[in-house]
Amino acid sequence: MSTRNTTSYAEFAQPVVRIKGLKKAFGDNVVLRDVNLEVDRGEVVCILGPSGSGKSTILRCINLLETPTSGEVWFEDTQVNAKGTDINKMREHIGMVFQQFNLFPHLTARGNVELALRQVQKKSKDEAKDIACEMLERVGLADRSEYYPSQLSGGQQQRVAIARALALAPHVMLFDEATSALDPELVRDVLDVMRNLAEGGMTMIVVTHEMSFAREAADRVIFMDEGVIVEEGTPTQIFDNPQHERTKDFLGHLA
């Protein structure tokens, strides 16, 4: 504790994200049945599972892009899905990276990063610019700051999207299949950025199909199927010694 004297014990011990009994249904289609999950500060959690298993929906419930049908989602000491929660304030601290990048095509790379700094955090023009340039440099795109998304490769676009989320100094980063839409040769650059973040102590929840990333970077791996967490453990436990049939099946199919 002594090295972190600015952080109270309560804050340090408290999970960043806490999910209790989360259910999500779209009409008759139940996507999440009963999900319980806690993610601690600095932890990197990778969520694996076949498509349609509800992985992305968990992420989207954390920042309320989807409203949970029932259950509780907590971010630090606030219940995200409670009435009266200032969701915009929450989202400022929850960075999200999408499969399709979702960069704003009418803004340059720098403009994409600056927008929320200016409009949400009310930073001055100069301050926003400084932060944006710093973030773009961090993802290796300092020389692309004045490019529009359509002038960038998929991998570069995704790195701008990461910079855009990082600029707000989020307490947790959600990655929703961040490399799935990329050509294989572009995946590496994005994964490198994510690996750096993980090593830098960022709390991350990563939905991915990149097994090598999960194995190297994750503190904990979660395997999901049909809306429930089937199995979780360290990467070694899950990859080398899976307990559950469905996990073995899934990992076997990948090999």
Binding site: L65, N102, A116, V120
Partner: peptide
């Protein structure tokens, strides 16, 4: 305008009116 644009704007903490004004409408006008 693709749904992802609004989702990206909202996920950055922009309110609905701000997302409209700074993300959706400029693209719409074009």
């Amino acid at each position: 305008i693709p749904r992802g644009q609004m989702e990206a704007a909202r996920s950055l903490g922009l309110s609905l009116p701000r997302s409209m004004a700074f993300v959706i409408l400029p693209q719409t006008v074009r």
